Every structure is written in structure tokens, then in C-alpha cells.
Computed example of a mutant assay.
Amino acid sequence: MINICLFGASGKMGKAVISASEDNNDVNINNFIVRETSDNLNKDVGDFHFGISSENNFESYPSKDFDLIIDFATRDHIEKRVEVYKTLKKPLIFCSSGLDESQMMHVKNLSDDFPVFIAENTSILMSLMKEAAIKTKKILAERNYSLSINEGHHKDKLDIPSGTALTLCDALEIGSEAVNSIREGDNESFHEVTFSTDYGDQLHIKHSGKRRVYAVEVLNIAKWFYQKPKNLYYMQTLIEDLHE
């Protein structure tokens, strides 16, 4: 059993991860972390998310021993969280998005002391979609075409474009101005890369998923990542390891 400390436990993804863990016999979330200034601090986790009382409360610092950290908190106060991670010295699966380059570098530098897995998007299918887009661009290198990205998330998502969309931009070597962002609804997200030729031919490569997808996948990552040696890991690292 892998005991997990969940940062961002009162958020929508926190709720999804907690729910998914109930159906997974290999993991157990035993620390539910929120900001020390959060209105949800000390509230009952089960009652807050599911209307059922539990033995767990939201805390600002872990009170029980655990094996690894999953961070789905927002980018706010990331510098303070990095200092907490330095103190805890536990393997970290970092899923927050919207960080600037300097903030992300602070997170990556933690891998000098303990394992760090960077996963702005935890879906393996999303990673495969990115690889398909990269391969398509290489094949079309000698053709005249345009390239654009459409992405959509729930109305409360803070970063525009999404971290995943910016990762796609980097992988495809295009600027963020090529991204069209939609913020509406409450749950399902999507990313779509469109290749268009000047003679009317189009290819759409699309991934979509609801919160439960990313929650189930991050727990799968946890099982793979648990007890890995000190290093910096990405979704591509996992895929290459699983499919050697």
C-alpha cells in the first residue's frame, strides 16, 4: 500500500483523486493538504466533498507518515510549497500548471535531492497525442500547411492557455498565439492540434477527458513512480519505460 499526501485536496481535482483512490487497492490518501489560509482548513474531508462524515480533516501540513506527494494545488504560493517539499524530502508528483519558467525551475531543482515527476497532464493518451502531432509535423516538413491548437477547460481554470497547450507549442515549435482557448462548463477538457494545407486538406488530432481520467492516471503514475531513484521524470519517461 502506497500512502499519499495530497496537496490541493479541497479542489476539484483533489476531490477526483480522493474518489479514484477509493477504487484502488494499491494506494491510500492519508494526508489532505490545503493552504494554511484556506477557509476549508480543519473541515471534514468526506463531509466537504461527498456529504459523508469521515475520520480525515484538511490540514496545512502532513500529520501522518506517507510515501509520496501528489500536488494538484493551484500555482498560488508555489514558492512556499517548494520550501515545504524540501523539508519533507519525499518523492513528488507535480501536476500544477501555469507556472512561469523560474517557478518551474525551482520545482525541477528539487530532483537533486529526491525523485520528482512533472505531469501537467497525467493522461498517457494525451502524451501519445502529442507524439502523433510531432510525427505529423515532421512528415509535412516539405509541405505548405498551417498549424493551430484549440483547447478547452472548465470556466474556473486560471491559466490561459493551459499548461498542456503550451507544452504542445514547445513540442511543435510554434508560438502561443496559435492557441485558441475556451473556458466554459465544469468538467471535460480537450486539446486539439489541426494541420491545414493551402488546398483544403485538414487533419485534427484531439484528446479529451474528464477529471476522473486524470485522477485515475495520476494514481497509476504513483504506482510506477514509487521507489524510483532520485531523478527528474516526465510522462515520456514513463511511456518509454512501459514500452521498451
Score class of each variant (00 low, 15 high):
S53V: 09
I78A: 01
I205T: 06
K43D: 09
S60Q: 15
G175C: 06
L110S: 08
Q103N: 08
F32R: 03
N25R: 02
L88I: 03
D241W: 15
L147F: 14
L88G: 02
S181P: 11
N121G: 00
F114D: 06
E55C: 11
A132S: 14
F72N: 06
F50I: 10
I93V: 05
N187I: 08
N150D: 15
K80T: 07
I18S: 00
L110V: 06
V218L: 04
G209F: 07
S127G: 15
H77D: 05
N30P: 02
A215D: 03
K157F: 03
E101V: 02
G163I: 02
N3H: 02
F7S: 04
Q227M: 10
Y226I: 07
L166I: 08
K228I: 13
T122C: 07
I124K: 11
R212C: 04
Y145D: 15
S19F: 09
K223M: 05
N24T: 04
Q227L: 10
L110H: 05
S189Y: 08
N30E: 06
I149T: 11
S176F: 09
M1K: 06
K230R: 13
V216F: 03
K135P: 13
A141W: 10
F190E: 12
L166T: 05
K64S: 10
I139Y: 15
K43V: 08
I52N: 09
W224P: 09
I239R: 11
K64I: 08
D65W: 01
D186G: 02
S127D: 14
A119W: 03
N30M: 04
K137I: 14
D201A: 14
Q103C: 04
L99G: 05
R211I: 03
T136A: 14
S38L: 08
L140H: 14
A9H: 01
V116H: 09
V216H: 04
N121K: 01
L68M: 01
V107T: 06
F66Q: 06
I93S: 01
